[in-house]
Amino acid sequence: MDQKIRVLVAKPGLDGHDRGAKIVARALRDAGMEVVYTGLHQTAEMIVETAIQEDVNVIGLSLLSGAHMTLFIDVTKLLKEKGLDDVLVIGGGIIPEEDVSKLKKAGVSGVFGPGTHCDDIVEFIRKNVKK
């Protein structure tokens, strides 16, 4: 039997908007994945540390405050530094189109804005996860 995909849903920084993160966490769990939710107010170090501890395949970052260009990229940089190249990073939130390509270049493989169907996130993870 296939091993379950393990996902860390994380809320970096001070942003308190957690509706999206919680919905995605539930949707991924309902799709059969193992989900760990960090809760609020995580630094990049805390997120990467938890990702290592929990041995996850995917990190899902959620941020609606507009600080994604700093805080998402802090996480992808730190992952690279730690040699965690096999972790798929995706992100969601209030993210203008022009930031999406920059984030992708920085290692956030999928970016999901408002109006995303939960199944699209599930499908994206299944297709792109490195196991």
Partner: peptide, 23 residues
């Protein structure tokens, strides 16, 4: 107010990183 203000941190606090004036 931006998030650092909402949480009672000054702009130069480490936890304010990336959030200055954002929301």
């Amino acid at each position: 107010f931006d998030y650092p203000t909402l949480y009672g941190y000054d702009t130069d606090h480490t936890l304010s990183r990336g959030e200055f004036g954002k929301c």
